[in-house]
Amino acid sequence: MLKRRHNDGKVVTITVDGETVEARAGESVAAAVLAHTEGATRTTPVSGAPRAPYCMMGVCFECLMEIDGQPNRQGCMVRVTDGMSVRRQQGARDMETSS
């Protein structure tokens, strides 16, 4: 789990799996989720194993999340915005929710 060294900065409110979470402007979605949750940020499509972001720079694809209804977004490459809705993916992405 991660902590913010300082709590200044503009507060941005997002939801993570429906729960309201305060993030800070400029943070990536992956960072905001890691500051809020311990452990897995998704489970794998192959075996359902727990995973969390590994590289934070867009190459490992472990931070895949559903962001504002669009599945399989790289959470480390997208900055939080006010009112953003984030969902952790369980297994393969759901084709139904794809926009």
Binding site: R4, R24, E27, L34, P53, Y54, C55, M57
Partner: peptide, 14 residues
């Protein structure tokens, strides 16, 4: 490097 990116982009540490 991921931990460093978290310091740079979010001021976060484990």
């Amino acid at each position: 490097g991921a931990a460093q990116i978290l310091m740079k982009s979010a001021g976060m540490v484990p």
